[in-house]
Design a protein around this nucleic acid. Structure first.
Lengths: 188, 188
DNA sequence: TTCTTTCTATACCGTTCGGTATGTAAGTGA
DNA sequence: TCACTTACATACCGAACGGTATAGAAAGAA
Protein backbone atom coordinates (compact mmCIF):
# COMPACT_ATOMS: atom_id res chain seq x y z
CA UNK A 1 0.00 0.00 0.00
CA UNK A 2 1.23 3.53 -0.80
CA UNK A 3 2.83 5.56 1.94
CA UNK A 4 1.66 9.07 1.23
CA UNK A 5 3.52 12.31 1.68
CA UNK A 6 5.78 12.33 4.75
CA UNK A 7 5.31 14.88 7.52
CA UNK A 8 7.26 18.06 6.95
CA UNK A 9 8.16 18.76 10.59
CA UNK A 10 9.56 16.87 13.55
CA UNK A 11 6.79 16.09 16.01
CA UNK A 12 9.04 16.16 19.08
CA UNK A 13 10.71 19.44 18.17
CA UNK A 14 7.32 21.03 17.58
CA UNK A 15 6.15 19.62 20.91
CA UNK A 16 9.09 21.29 22.65
CA UNK A 17 7.93 24.62 21.29
CA UNK A 18 4.41 23.92 22.53
CA UNK A 19 5.80 23.18 25.99
CA UNK A 20 7.29 26.65 26.13
CA UNK A 21 4.07 28.33 25.08
CA UNK A 22 1.96 26.46 27.64
CA UNK A 23 4.61 27.10 30.27
CA UNK A 24 4.66 30.82 29.63
CA UNK A 25 0.97 31.42 29.00
CA UNK A 26 -0.87 28.58 30.71
CA UNK A 27 -3.38 26.23 29.12
CA UNK A 28 -6.20 28.73 28.68
CA UNK A 29 -3.88 31.59 27.85
CA UNK A 30 -2.24 29.70 24.99
CA UNK A 31 -4.36 30.05 21.87
CA UNK A 32 -4.15 27.69 18.95
CA UNK A 33 -2.61 30.49 16.92
CA UNK A 34 0.05 31.08 19.58
CA UNK A 35 0.81 27.37 19.61
CA UNK A 36 0.92 26.70 15.89
CA UNK A 37 2.95 29.87 15.26
CA UNK A 38 5.56 28.77 17.79
CA UNK A 39 5.51 25.20 16.51
CA UNK A 40 6.01 26.39 12.94
CA UNK A 41 3.07 24.40 11.63
CA UNK A 42 -0.50 25.19 10.75
CA UNK A 43 -3.70 24.17 12.41
CA UNK A 44 -4.67 21.05 10.47
CA UNK A 45 -1.15 19.66 10.90
CA UNK A 46 -1.46 20.12 14.64
CA UNK A 47 -4.82 18.36 14.75
CA UNK A 48 -3.57 15.53 12.58
CA UNK A 49 -0.44 15.02 14.67
CA UNK A 50 -1.75 15.50 18.22
CA UNK A 51 -5.55 15.30 18.19
CA UNK A 52 -6.68 18.56 19.74
CA UNK A 53 -5.54 21.27 22.13
CA UNK A 54 -6.08 19.25 25.29
CA UNK A 55 -4.26 16.20 23.97
CA UNK A 56 -1.44 18.42 22.81
CA UNK A 57 -1.27 19.81 26.33
CA UNK A 58 -1.12 16.33 27.86
CA UNK A 59 1.64 15.38 25.47
CA UNK A 60 3.45 18.61 26.34
CA UNK A 61 3.19 17.87 30.06
CA UNK A 62 4.54 14.36 29.50
CA UNK A 63 7.42 15.74 27.48
CA UNK A 64 8.06 18.34 30.16
CA UNK A 65 8.14 15.65 32.85
CA UNK A 66 10.57 13.63 30.79
CA UNK A 67 12.96 16.45 29.93
CA UNK A 68 12.61 19.27 32.42
CA UNK A 69 11.87 17.15 35.47
CA UNK A 70 14.59 14.59 34.95
CA UNK A 71 16.26 16.05 38.02
CA UNK A 72 13.43 14.67 40.16
CA UNK A 73 14.21 11.10 39.19
CA UNK A 74 17.91 11.72 39.84
CA UNK A 75 17.06 13.07 43.27
CA UNK A 76 15.07 9.95 44.14
CA UNK A 77 18.19 7.91 43.45
CA UNK A 78 20.19 9.62 46.20
CA UNK A 79 21.28 7.27 48.99
CA UNK A 80 19.66 8.87 52.06
CA UNK A 81 16.28 10.48 52.69
CA UNK A 82 17.93 13.79 53.52
CA UNK A 83 20.05 13.67 50.38
CA UNK A 84 16.97 12.90 48.29
CA UNK A 85 15.16 15.93 49.67
CA UNK A 86 18.11 18.28 49.51
CA UNK A 87 18.96 17.27 45.99
CA UNK A 88 15.36 17.63 44.90
CA UNK A 89 14.88 21.09 46.35
CA UNK A 90 18.23 22.38 45.08
CA UNK A 91 17.71 21.06 41.56
CA UNK A 92 14.15 22.35 41.65
CA UNK A 93 15.33 25.85 42.56
CA UNK A 94 17.78 25.72 39.66
CA UNK A 95 15.17 24.42 37.23
CA UNK A 96 12.73 27.18 38.21
CA UNK A 97 15.26 29.85 37.28
CA UNK A 98 16.91 28.61 34.11
CA UNK A 99 17.66 31.55 31.86
CA UNK A 100 16.87 29.55 28.72
CA UNK A 101 13.42 28.59 29.97
CA UNK A 102 10.37 30.44 31.30
CA UNK A 103 10.46 31.15 35.03
CA UNK A 104 8.58 28.76 37.26
CA UNK A 105 7.26 25.37 36.28
CA UNK A 106 4.71 24.17 33.75
CA UNK A 107 2.74 22.26 36.35
CA UNK A 108 1.93 25.47 38.22
CA UNK A 109 1.87 27.93 35.32
CA UNK A 110 -0.32 25.61 33.28
CA UNK A 111 -3.36 26.44 35.33
CA UNK A 112 -4.76 26.02 38.84
CA UNK A 113 -8.36 27.23 38.62
CA UNK A 114 -11.12 25.05 37.17
CA UNK A 115 -10.99 23.09 33.96
CA UNK A 116 -9.66 19.69 33.06
CA UNK A 117 -6.13 21.00 32.58
CA UNK A 118 -5.95 22.04 36.23
CA UNK A 119 -7.27 18.67 37.38
CA UNK A 120 -4.79 16.84 35.21
CA UNK A 121 -1.87 18.88 36.52
CA UNK A 122 -2.97 18.50 40.14
CA UNK A 123 -3.21 14.74 39.73
CA UNK A 124 0.25 14.54 38.20
CA UNK A 125 1.72 16.64 41.00
CA UNK A 126 0.15 14.37 43.59
CA UNK A 127 1.54 11.37 41.72
CA UNK A 128 5.01 12.87 42.04
CA UNK A 129 4.38 13.48 45.70
CA UNK A 130 3.38 9.83 46.12
CA UNK A 131 6.58 8.71 44.41
CA UNK A 132 8.62 10.81 46.84
CA UNK A 133 6.63 9.44 49.79
CA UNK A 134 7.36 5.92 48.59
CA UNK A 135 11.05 6.65 48.37
CA UNK A 136 11.09 8.17 51.86
CA UNK A 137 9.11 5.24 53.25
CA UNK A 138 11.80 2.95 51.90
CA UNK A 139 14.60 4.97 53.50
CA UNK A 140 16.16 3.43 56.57
CA UNK A 141 17.77 6.59 57.83
CA UNK A 142 14.69 8.57 58.90
CA UNK A 143 14.13 8.94 62.65
CA UNK A 144 11.46 6.64 64.08
CA UNK A 145 8.08 8.29 64.10
CA UNK A 146 8.68 10.30 60.93
CA UNK A 147 5.67 10.23 58.61
CA UNK A 148 7.04 9.80 55.07
CA UNK A 149 3.83 11.01 53.40
CA UNK A 150 3.70 14.15 55.51
CA UNK A 151 7.37 14.86 54.87
CA UNK A 152 6.90 14.34 51.14
CA UNK A 153 3.96 16.71 51.17
CA UNK A 154 6.04 19.33 52.97
CA UNK A 155 8.78 19.03 50.37
CA UNK A 156 6.28 19.43 47.55
CA UNK A 157 4.74 22.44 49.29
CA UNK A 158 8.15 24.10 49.40
CA UNK A 159 8.81 23.33 45.75
CA UNK A 160 5.39 24.62 44.69
CA UNK A 161 5.76 27.76 46.75
CA UNK A 162 9.16 28.33 45.20
CA UNK A 163 7.59 27.88 41.78
CA UNK A 164 5.07 30.60 42.57
CA UNK A 165 7.88 32.85 43.75
CA UNK A 166 10.01 32.14 40.69
CA UNK A 167 7.12 33.08 38.42
CA UNK A 168 6.86 36.33 40.36
CA UNK A 169 10.48 37.13 39.55
CA UNK A 170 12.40 35.94 42.63
CA UNK A 171 15.90 34.97 41.50
CA UNK A 172 17.85 31.76 41.98
CA UNK A 173 19.69 32.94 45.09
CA UNK A 174 16.38 33.86 46.68
CA UNK A 175 14.96 30.40 46.09
CA UNK A 176 18.06 28.73 47.49
CA UNK A 177 17.86 30.92 50.59
CA UNK A 178 14.36 29.55 51.10
CA UNK A 179 15.67 26.01 50.62
CA UNK A 180 18.34 26.74 53.25
CA UNK A 181 15.60 27.45 55.77
CA UNK A 182 13.26 24.70 54.59
CA UNK A 183 15.93 22.03 55.04
CA UNK A 184 16.18 22.84 58.74
CA UNK A 185 12.78 21.19 59.15
CA UNK A 186 13.93 17.95 57.54
CA UNK A 187 15.04 15.27 60.05
CA UNK A 188 18.48 13.80 59.47
CA UNK B 1 -29.69 69.21 40.93
CA UNK B 2 -31.79 66.06 40.48
CA UNK B 3 -30.55 62.83 41.92
CA UNK B 4 -31.61 60.29 39.35
CA UNK B 5 -32.78 56.75 39.89
CA UNK B 6 -30.92 54.99 42.70
CA UNK B 7 -28.97 51.83 42.05
CA UNK B 8 -31.03 48.68 42.45
CA UNK B 9 -28.32 46.49 44.02
CA UNK B 10 -25.75 46.73 46.77
CA UNK B 11 -22.30 47.23 45.26
CA UNK B 12 -20.45 45.46 48.07
CA UNK B 13 -22.74 42.44 48.11
CA UNK B 14 -22.39 42.09 44.36
CA UNK B 15 -18.63 42.44 44.75
CA UNK B 16 -18.61 39.56 47.22
CA UNK B 17 -20.24 37.37 44.61
CA UNK B 18 -17.63 38.44 42.07
CA UNK B 19 -14.88 37.48 44.53
CA UNK B 20 -16.21 33.93 44.63
CA UNK B 21 -16.37 33.63 40.87
CA UNK B 22 -12.81 34.92 40.36
CA UNK B 23 -11.63 32.71 43.21
CA UNK B 24 -13.17 29.60 41.71
CA UNK B 25 -12.50 30.22 38.02
CA UNK B 26 -9.55 32.61 37.90
CA UNK B 27 -9.42 35.93 36.09
CA UNK B 28 -9.38 34.59 32.56
CA UNK B 29 -11.74 31.73 33.36
CA UNK B 30 -14.40 34.05 34.72
CA UNK B 31 -16.48 35.40 31.85
CA UNK B 32 -18.55 38.54 32.10
CA UNK B 33 -21.67 36.38 31.91
CA UNK B 34 -20.45 34.22 34.80
CA UNK B 35 -19.76 37.33 36.82
CA UNK B 36 -22.93 39.27 36.15
CA UNK B 37 -25.07 36.16 36.62
CA UNK B 38 -23.52 35.53 40.04
CA UNK B 39 -23.73 39.21 40.95
CA UNK B 40 -27.40 39.34 39.98
CA UNK B 41 -26.93 42.35 37.74
CA UNK B 42 -26.59 42.86 34.03
CA UNK B 43 -23.65 43.98 32.01
CA UNK B 44 -24.19 47.73 31.74
CA UNK B 45 -24.78 47.94 35.50
CA UNK B 46 -21.45 46.24 36.10
CA UNK B 47 -19.64 48.61 33.76
CA UNK B 48 -21.32 51.64 35.32
CA UNK B 49 -20.48 50.53 38.86
CA UNK B 50 -16.97 49.12 38.48
CA UNK B 51 -15.51 50.27 35.16
CA UNK B 52 -14.54 47.07 33.39
CA UNK B 53 -13.55 43.47 34.07
CA UNK B 54 -10.02 44.28 35.16
CA UNK B 55 -11.10 47.03 37.55
CA UNK B 56 -13.76 44.73 38.93
CA UNK B 57 -11.04 42.16 39.55
CA UNK B 58 -8.86 44.67 41.37
CA UNK B 59 -11.80 45.71 43.53
CA UNK B 60 -12.52 42.03 44.19
CA UNK B 61 -8.92 41.40 45.23
CA UNK B 62 -9.02 44.41 47.56
CA UNK B 63 -12.28 43.18 49.08
CA UNK B 64 -10.78 39.71 49.44
CA UNK B 65 -7.74 41.12 51.23
CA UNK B 66 -9.97 43.09 53.55
CA UNK B 67 -12.35 40.25 54.43
CA UNK B 68 -10.72 36.90 53.77
CA UNK B 69 -7.18 37.87 54.71
CA UNK B 70 -8.02 39.68 57.93
CA UNK B 71 -6.27 36.83 59.71
CA UNK B 72 -2.96 38.01 58.30
CA UNK B 73 -3.22 41.37 60.02
CA UNK B 74 -4.17 39.65 63.27
CA UNK B 75 -1.15 37.40 62.95
CA UNK B 76 1.17 40.39 62.56
CA UNK B 77 -0.09 41.67 65.89
CA UNK B 78 1.16 38.65 67.81
CA UNK B 79 3.85 39.46 70.38
CA UNK B 80 6.76 37.33 69.19
CA UNK B 81 8.19 36.51 65.78
CA UNK B 82 7.49 32.83 66.26
CA UNK B 83 3.91 33.53 67.33
CA UNK B 84 3.41 35.77 64.30
CA UNK B 85 4.54 33.00 61.96
CA UNK B 86 2.70 30.19 63.69
CA UNK B 87 -0.52 32.17 63.86
CA UNK B 88 -0.22 33.17 60.22
CA UNK B 89 0.38 29.64 58.93
CA UNK B 90 -2.33 28.11 61.11
CA UNK B 91 -4.95 30.69 60.15
CA UNK B 92 -3.85 30.41 56.54
CA UNK B 93 -4.38 26.64 56.57
CA UNK B 94 -7.85 27.17 58.01
CA UNK B 95 -8.71 29.90 55.48
CA UNK B 96 -7.61 27.70 52.59
CA UNK B 97 -10.07 24.98 53.62
CA UNK B 98 -13.22 26.83 54.67
CA UNK B 99 -16.23 24.82 53.66
CA UNK B 100 -18.23 27.95 52.83
CA UNK B 101 -15.58 29.23 50.43
CA UNK B 102 -13.72 27.87 47.40
CA UNK B 103 -10.62 25.85 48.25
CA UNK B 104 -7.30 27.66 48.06
CA UNK B 105 -6.83 31.40 47.84
CA UNK B 106 -7.82 34.03 45.31
CA UNK B 107 -4.27 35.32 44.96
CA UNK B 108 -3.12 31.97 43.58
CA UNK B 109 -6.29 30.83 41.84
CA UNK B 110 -6.72 34.20 40.19
CA UNK B 111 -3.94 33.49 37.74
CA UNK B 112 -0.19 32.94 37.61
CA UNK B 113 0.67 32.86 33.90
CA UNK B 114 1.00 36.03 31.86
CA UNK B 115 -1.42 38.91 31.78
CA UNK B 116 -1.86 41.97 33.96
CA UNK B 117 -3.96 40.07 36.50
CA UNK B 118 -1.04 37.75 37.27
CA UNK B 119 1.34 40.69 37.64
CA UNK B 120 -1.07 42.50 39.92
CA UNK B 121 -1.51 39.44 42.13
CA UNK B 122 2.22 38.75 42.27
CA UNK B 123 2.89 42.33 43.33
CA UNK B 124 0.28 42.18 46.06
CA UNK B 125 1.69 38.91 47.37
CA UNK B 126 5.17 40.42 47.49
CA UNK B 127 3.75 43.43 49.33
CA UNK B 128 2.33 41.08 51.95
CA UNK B 129 5.70 39.38 52.18
CA UNK B 130 7.36 42.74 52.72
CA UNK B 131 4.92 43.55 55.51
CA UNK B 132 5.78 40.28 57.22
CA UNK B 133 9.50 40.94 56.75
CA UNK B 134 9.06 44.34 58.35
CA UNK B 135 7.27 42.84 61.33
CA UNK B 136 9.98 40.20 61.75
CA UNK B 137 12.72 42.82 61.45
CA UNK B 138 11.09 44.67 64.31
CA UNK B 139 10.94 41.57 66.51
CA UNK B 140 13.49 41.47 69.30
CA UNK B 141 13.20 37.75 69.93
CA UNK B 142 14.81 36.37 66.75
CA UNK B 143 18.28 34.83 67.15
CA UNK B 144 21.14 37.05 65.99
CA UNK B 145 22.01 36.43 62.38
CA UNK B 146 18.45 35.62 61.32
CA UNK B 147 17.52 37.29 58.02
CA UNK B 148 13.97 38.62 58.44
CA UNK B 149 13.38 38.95 54.69
CA UNK B 150 14.51 35.39 54.00
CA UNK B 151 12.39 34.06 56.83
CA UNK B 152 9.36 35.99 55.59
CA UNK B 153 9.90 34.60 52.12
CA UNK B 154 10.06 31.08 53.51
CA UNK B 155 6.78 31.59 55.35
CA UNK B 156 5.10 32.89 52.20
CA UNK B 157 6.46 29.95 50.22
CA UNK B 158 4.87 27.55 52.68
CA UNK B 159 1.56 29.41 52.55
CA UNK B 160 1.57 29.49 48.74
CA UNK B 161 2.48 25.83 48.49
CA UNK B 162 -0.32 25.02 50.89
CA UNK B 163 -2.68 27.07 48.73
CA UNK B 164 -1.72 24.98 45.71
CA UNK B 165 -2.28 21.83 47.72
CA UNK B 166 -5.63 23.03 49.04
CA UNK B 167 -6.80 23.75 45.51
CA UNK B 168 -5.81 20.19 44.63
CA UNK B 169 -8.09 18.85 47.33
CA UNK B 170 -5.77 18.31 50.32
CA UNK B 171 -7.84 18.71 53.48
CA UNK B 172 -7.34 20.92 56.51
CA UNK B 173 -5.55 18.26 58.57
CA UNK B 174 -3.13 17.69 55.72
CA UNK B 175 -2.24 21.39 55.55
CA UNK B 176 -1.75 21.57 59.31
CA UNK B 177 0.54 18.54 59.18
CA UNK B 178 2.67 20.48 56.70
CA UNK B 179 2.64 23.48 59.02
CA UNK B 180 3.81 21.20 61.86
CA UNK B 181 6.89 20.35 59.86
CA UNK B 182 7.40 23.83 58.43
CA UNK B 183 7.48 25.38 61.90
CA UNK B 184 10.48 23.26 62.84
CA UNK B 185 12.55 25.45 60.52
CA UNK B 186 11.52 28.65 62.28
CA UNK B 187 14.00 29.88 64.90
CA UNK B 188 12.57 30.53 68.34
C1' DT C 1 -47.04 67.18 37.03
C1' DT C 2 -43.02 67.80 34.64
C1' DC C 3 -38.19 67.79 34.09
C1' DT C 4 -33.85 65.93 34.75
C1' DT C 5 -30.83 62.43 35.88
C1' DT C 6 -29.40 57.90 36.47
C1' DC C 7 -30.17 53.03 36.39
C1' DT C 8 -31.79 48.88 33.87
C1' DA C 9 -32.82 45.78 29.96
C1' DT C 10 -32.16 44.09 25.38
C1' DA C 11 -29.85 43.64 21.62
C1' DC C 12 -25.90 44.21 19.28
C1' DC C 13 -20.71 45.32 18.00
C1' DG C 14 -16.11 43.49 16.21
C1' DT C 15 -12.76 40.07 17.62
C1' DT C 16 -11.02 35.82 18.91
C1' DC C 17 -11.78 31.29 20.32
C1' DG C 18 -11.24 25.94 19.23
C1' DG C 19 -12.02 23.20 15.42
C1' DT C 20 -12.80 21.79 10.38
C1' DA C 21 -14.03 21.45 5.17
C1' DT C 22 -11.73 21.70 0.88
C1' DG C 23 -8.53 21.80 -2.64
C1' DT C 24 -3.73 21.15 -3.80
C1' DA C 25 1.15 19.67 -3.27
C1' DA C 26 4.31 15.95 -2.44
C1' DG C 27 5.88 11.93 -1.74
C1' DT C 28 5.72 6.15 -2.27
C1' DG C 29 4.64 1.74 -4.59
C1' DA C 30 3.45 -0.48 -8.83
C1' DT D 1 4.13 7.15 -15.61
C1' DC D 2 0.34 6.58 -12.98
C1' DA D 3 -2.46 5.65 -8.98
C1' DC D 4 -2.85 6.28 -4.25
C1' DT D 5 -2.25 8.07 0.18
C1' DT D 6 -1.14 11.50 3.21
C1' DA D 7 0.38 16.31 4.50
C1' DC D 8 -0.12 21.16 3.79
C1' DA D 9 -2.38 25.80 3.09
C1' DT D 10 -6.30 28.66 2.96
C1' DA D 11 -10.39 29.84 4.18
C1' DC D 12 -14.11 29.17 6.84
C1' DC D 13 -17.53 27.53 10.79
C1' DG D 14 -20.56 28.52 14.99
C1' DA D 15 -19.85 30.00 19.59
C1' DA D 16 -18.14 32.77 23.11
C1' DC D 17 -15.43 36.63 24.36
C1' DG D 18 -15.20 41.76 26.43
C1' DG D 19 -17.57 45.79 25.74
C1' DT D 20 -21.34 49.19 24.21
C1' DA D 21 -25.42 51.70 21.83
C1' DT D 22 -30.05 52.56 22.63
C1' DA D 23 -34.37 52.86 24.52
C1' DG D 24 -37.38 52.55 28.37
C1' DA D 25 -38.19 52.70 33.52
C1' DA D 26 -37.79 54.76 38.10
C1' DA D 27 -36.75 58.02 41.38
C1' DG D 28 -35.89 63.03 43.35
C1' DA D 29 -36.36 68.20 42.57
C1' DA D 30 -39.08 71.90 41.00
Amino acid sequence: MPQGRPRGFDAETALDRAVEVFWRQGYDGASLSDLTDAMGINRPSMYAAYGNKEQLFRRAVARYAEIDMAYAREALAQPTAYAVIERFLRANADALTRTDRPAGCLSIQGGLAGGSAAEFLAASRLAGEAALADRLARADDLPAGTDPAALARYVMVVSEGNAVHAAAGVDRAGLHATVDIALRAVPR
